[in-house]
Write a protein that binds this DNA or RNA. Structure first.
Length: 801
DNA sequence: TCCTGGAGCGC
DNA sequence: AGGCGCTCCAGGA
């Protein structure tokens, strides 16, 4: 901090050590010997002798490992026998606690092959772990937080690796630790820069060329609470500029230069810069961006368009690396490969692009909106209208060249660029993207940037990595043997086909890659295990009260109720469905979920008494906790997940199906009520009553009876429907009445055509009208007539068109 | 006519 | 790069 302003700082961590584990053959640490020594080693003296004995027992193993490491040019290693746990899918590593050999050596030495074996050890784990992951897990860093950095030295300017204001070096990762008193410290604000490019199309090369770049910068953005418009739009915390260039072989229209200098003079800074070439524009843009040194880059489809164009143009225009690399915080000398193997639209920026902006976060409001909202279209124009209630003028690259004919139209172009940057920024605040993703990241302990890119699987991965590491488990390797086999098989296949038509194959190797990704995607289409139970609906139009009951967080609750975990469920090697665990010791997953649920309950209790910003902060926090708990199951069943465990996922859904069926049986047989539908975790009960308070009383009875049966699982009243049209599984509509005693009513539509993106607006409007009529409570004749009349009218209208 | 996939929802 | 269940609609055999 200088004065009241925060600045960027880069910390270079030297001497990161790899951490790999050798799983010894059973003869190395004989079980009976070990348990005898352990029993006697309660005092500290005895624990010394335990260590000595362990070293002695492992001497053969150690010398073998040492020899193999030397063969691989690895020197400077340290080996220690340690007790670790294992509970994952590798069959060559025993389940449970055992002594293993921990091997540490510097990352600068090569990784040892994952399949290395010896006479005294039959598996190696952690051979390929990334330094970053190891650092975060070992230092217990869980998302953005205050760190205490000791024994650092300032980096001389000639040896800098970053563009940050400060750069320091530490000699060991242990010089960095999470500051425990951090909750008393202020959460620093971040600097957010919204970027928008306007481009024209070069027909000859079929590429976009940049003609103008606009930036809106917000210097004091809170990341702990949402911000209202009046907060972030406060005077003095926002700046903006546009840099524009003339078209090749022409000059700027008359009056533009004068207007630009007038504006700059009036603003007291460069708000409109005019450059003579694209290269000069890029240089100027980089200089201005590096002055801002923003923490977050935001833009609508910035990862699919703006950054890609920016870096490609920098490459083509031969902008020096000392310039273009200022788009990020790391100095770079060579442009990485910008294209990605997977060219799917809307899948985020390529790894090359992401590496260019290292040190800054990327917030793509297009991708965020797709994740957080349900809209027919996610264009900036549409979102501005539906979310921000603002009009936006669309400008296509083809509209732009004519705008260079006059100063007036060109100034319009400047306005459009700045408006687009502004709208994207506004969308980011509107969705509370930064506070929400920060909370999610602090819960899981992954990288904030990854949360912003979606990466739900990676969040769960880190959550589990932290948990299992804290309980001294050896963590599964990132690339399991199963994937390796698959890859090598694919490569072989690839080589074969290439041999068939070598000429084509050699021409463009990237094409082969894409074909392969496609194949893999196809192969994984079908479901691999059974999911939730959907009851056959009793179709019809219901006009008396219906109760909607559902289990709160069904799958997380099942994991806790039945203690389902890697550590508790015995999986058979043939992949059969496992039995429920009998062990009483609580597993890691149930404990983890329990703590998430408890934290959420606490936050929700604070929520009740809080107000204003504090309240919004708590609300985001409790949402994030719920999201995290609910996403764990999905990753157990995700075949590419590091913690993939189909038997566990299967066991969970099986319990879910049984619980739903048991609930239906109880409600129908014991309570003599009519269940008309249910899906996965819910049941709908037709009461046949006109009196809502009587209906609610029945709900209370059902809840009481069902909840009696479980320890963690909990069913609750989610809503009461006054009238309902039940058409098919997953397709229904109903008038939901508010539970808070107010008379508010609202029509819920599920799965019907009018909620789908692939139906025309007209058909949705007609559908909505019909639905309103059907649920209106009018007589059958009236409804039929009204619908018929309206359809006749539509027909007449259509004929006129 | 029957059968397979994708979309796009619901949970 | 979370999962499966269920309409629908195309398109090919």
């Amino acid at each position: 901090v200088i004065g009241k302003r925060f600045h960027s700082c880069c910390v270079v961590v030297k001497n990161m050590q790899r951490c790999i584990y050798a799983i010894p053959s059973s003869s190395v640490f004989p079980r009976d010997t070990i348990s005898r020594i352990e029993k006697n080693s309660t005092s500290s003296d005895a624990s010394l002798s335990l260590r000595a004995t362990l070293h002695e027992l492992s001497s053969g193993l150690k010398s073998e490992v040492a020899e193999k490491l030397s063969d691989l040019n690895v020197s400077n290693f340290v080996m220690t026998p340690v007790k670790r746990n294992y509970a994952f899918e590798r069959t060559d590593v025993p389940i449970g606690e055992q002594y293993v050999l921990k091997i540490n050596y510097p990352y600068k030495d090569p990784a040892v092959p994952a399949d290395l074996r010896g006479d005294h050890f039959h598996a190696l784990l952690g051979t390929n772990n990334s330094a970053l992951e190891l650092f975060l897990i070992k230092r217990k860093i869980k998302g953005p937080s205050w760190l205490s950095i000791s024994k650092f030295v300032a980096c001389p300017s000639t040896q800098r690796v970053s563009w940050c204001k400060f750069e320091v070096t530490v000699d060991s990762p242990k010089d960095i630790s999470v500051l425990m008193t951090s909750n008393t410290l202020e959460v620093p604000p971040v600097v957010v820069a919204a970027v928008n490019l306007k481009t024209i199309i070069n027909e000859k090369h079929n590429v976009h060329e940049i003609v103008s770049a606009s930036v809106i910068c917000c210097h004091q953005v809170k990341i702990d609470t949402p911000m209202r418009s009046e907060d972030w739009q406060k005077r003095g915390t926002i700046s903006h500029f546009t840099v524009m260039r003339k078209l090749e072989g022409s000059i700027f229209p008359i009056g533009l230069t004068k207007e630009a200098s007038d504006r700059n003079q009036k603003a007291g800074s460069n708000v409109l810069a005019l450059e003579s070439s694209e290269r000069a524009l890029l240089n100027r843009l980089m200089i201005e961006l590096s002055k801002l040194d923003c923490d977050v880059l935001v833009g609508h489809n910035i990862s699919g368009f703006d950054l890609d164009v920016l870096l490609h143009r920098a490459q083509t225009c031969k902008v020096p690396s000392s310039m273009w690399s200022k788009i990020g915080r790391l100095r770079r000398s060579v442009m990485p490969r910008l294209t990605k193997g997977n060219t799917l639209y809307g899948s985020g920026a390529s790894p090359g692009i992401m590496s260019c902006i290292a040190g800054r976060l990327l917030c793509d409001t297009y991708l965020c909106s797709r994740d957080l909202l349900r809209e027919v279209s996610y264009s900036l124009t549409q979102l501005a209208e539906t979310q921000l209630k603002k009009d936006r003028r669309e400008v296509s690259p083809h509209d732009i060249p004519p705008m260079f004919q006059s100063a007036g139209t060109l100034l319009k172009l400047v306005e459009y660029g700045e408006t687009d940057a502004w709208l994207s920024l506004e969308l980011m605040f509107h969705l509370s993207v930064l506070p929400l993703t920060r909370q999610l990241t602090n819960i899981s302990g992954n990288l904030w940037g990854k949360t912003l890119q979606g990466a739900r699987a990676q969040r769960v991965e880190y959550l589990l990595l932290h948990s299992f590491h804290a309980k001294k488990f050896i963590i599964p390797d990132k690339f399991a043997a199963r994937n390796k086999e698959l890859n090598s098989a694919k490569r072989k296949l690839n080589a074969d086909t290439e041999g068939g038509n070598a000429a084509d194959g050699a021409a463009d190797p990237s094409i082969d890659d894409e074909v392969h990704h496609g194949d893999q995607g196809k192969a994984r289409k079908g479901p691999s295990y059974a999911g939730g139970l959907v009851l056959e609906p009793k179709k019809g139009l219901y006009d008396k009260y219906i109760l909607l009951l559902d289990f709160n967080s069904l799958y997380p609750s099942i994991i806790q109720e039945f203690n389902i975990c890697f550590t508790t469920v015995e999986r058979s090697s043939d992949g059969n469905l496992p039995n429920l665990p009998t062990s009483k010791a609580s597993g890691v997953l149930p404990e983890l979920l329990k703590s998430l649920v408890e934290r959420r309950r606490m936050v929700k209790s604070w929520l009740k008494t809080a107000s204003g910003l504090k309240r919004q902060q708590f609300d985001i926090q409790q949402q994030a906790l719920k999201l995290t708990a609910n996403s764990m199951y999905g990753c157990l069943g995700f075949s590419n997940s590091r913690f993939f465990a189909k038997p566990l996922a299967e066991l969970i859904t099986l319990q879910g199906r049984e619980i739903l069926q048991n609930t239906v049986d109880l409600v129908q047989n014991n309570l003599n009520l009519e269940v008309i539908y249910g899906d996965t975790d819910s049941i709908m009960i037709y009461t046949g009553l006109d009196d809502i308070s009587k209906a609610k009383a029945i709900a209370g009875k059902v809840i009481q009876e069902v909840n009696k049966k479980y320890r963690c699982l909990e069913i609750d009243l989610d809503g009461v429907y006054k009238r309902m049209l039940l058409l098919k599984k997953k397709k229904y509509a109903a008038i939901k009445v508010a539970l808070d005693g107010s008379l508010r009513e609202n029509i819920e539509r599920k799965g019907l055509d009018m909620v789908r993106r692939d139906w025309s607006l007209l058909s949705k409007e007609i559908g909505d009208f019909c639905l309103n009529q059907i649920l209106s409570g009018g007589t059958c004749d009236d409804v039929v007539e009204s619908i018929h009349n309206s359809l006749v009218q539509v027909q007449a209208q259509m004929k006129k068109w």
